[in-house]
Amino acid sequence: MDDPDDFPWNSNDEPQSDPGSFFLKAAGFELLLGLIGLAAAWMLGYDARQLIPRGDQYGDIFYGLGVGVVATAPMLLAVWILERLNLTGVEELSRITKDRLLAPMRHLTVLELFAISVCAGLGEELLFRGWLQGWLIGPLDEASQVQIIVGVAVASLAFGLVHAMTPTYFALATLVGVYLGYLTILTENLLVPIVAHALYDAVQLIFAFRDD
């Protein structure tokens, strides 16, 4: 979920010769998204971190981590099924992803790939679920069903637009946004989408290079 046209690794140029430089740019870009979310929330008087458990809330932390890991499975299963349906849009997306996303990441270590995935999960979820969705919906115990639907829909469409490399990827990313959005609402724990997002990206990246 990390490859919109303006991301630092999305380029038609040859892979960068300095993997360390590329790693810092990719990780930094993802974290910047999170900072944008925090800054936007602060300016609007909203705390984008309010659904992240505090350091002493061990039960909520382990709950968020555990549910986040489990929540990764449906996304991985959906991708596995789509890749075997031989759909034109999915095949085009797979080709573009290999050419524009994976090529410059080929020389990164597994640890670096995992670190970028964690940064993506943290940064993008703070921006889209932590700030945008949360701000649009407001306090969950006071929100109407209409507010929840609108908040999830707007945040998911924004998430899809950021990933709109192709129409297929826009649609898939938007659906993932809806899934992560409702996970956030049902659990009231932002660690859940952060972990699910990060683990999904890590598995996809690491297995893509393993299969090369």
Rank of each mutant, 00 (worst) to 15 (best):
A71C: 06
G64V: 08
L113S: 09
D56P: 08
V118E: 09
G68L: 02
F114T: 15
L113W: 13
D60T: 07
L102W: 08
G68A: 05
M105A: 14
R49N: 12
T97L: 10
F114C: 10
I81Y: 11
C119K: 03
C119M: 10
L122N: 06
S117E: 06
W42S: 12
L113H: 14
G68T: 05
G123P: 01
W80N: 09
A39C: 09
A71I: 06
E112I: 09
C119L: 04
E92C: 08
L101R: 11
L65K: 05
M75N: 06
I52A: 06
A73D: 03
Y63H: 11
M105E: 10
G64K: 04
L102H: 09
A73R: 04
Y58A: 12
T72L: 02
S94G: 12
T72R: 01
L76Y: 07
A71E: 02
C119Q: 01
A48Q: 00
E91Y: 03
M43P: 03
L93P: 00
M105Q: 13
G64Q: 05
A71W: 01
L111H: 11
W42T: 13
D99R: 15
G123M: 05
E92M: 11
T109M: 02
L93N: 14
R95A: 14
I36S: 02
E92R: 15
A71K: 02
I96G: 09
D47A: 00
A120P: 00
E91M: 12
H107V: 08
V90G: 00
L87T: 03
W42D: 13
M75C: 07
L87A: 11
A40M: 14
L85F: 09
C119G: 04
V110T: 14
G37W: 06
S94W: 06
L77H: 02
P53L: 09
E91N: 13
F62R: 11
Y58E: 10
V118H: 06
E83Q: 15
L108S: 07
L44K: 13
I81C: 01
G68R: 07
E112T: 10
L44Y: 10
Q50A: 10
F62C: 05
L93F: 14
S117T: 08
R49Y: 10
T109W: 04
Q50I: 05
G68H: 07
T97K: 10
I61Y: 02
I36N: 02
E83F: 10
L101Y: 13
D47F: 01
V118R: 02
T88L: 13
R106F: 00
M43K: 15
L122T: 09
D99S: 13
L113M: 13
A115V: 12
I116T: 14
V118Y: 00
L87G: 05
Y46R: 06
Y58W: 15
Q57I: 01
M75K: 05
A78Y: 05
M105D: 04
P104C: 02
R95I: 13
I61V: 11
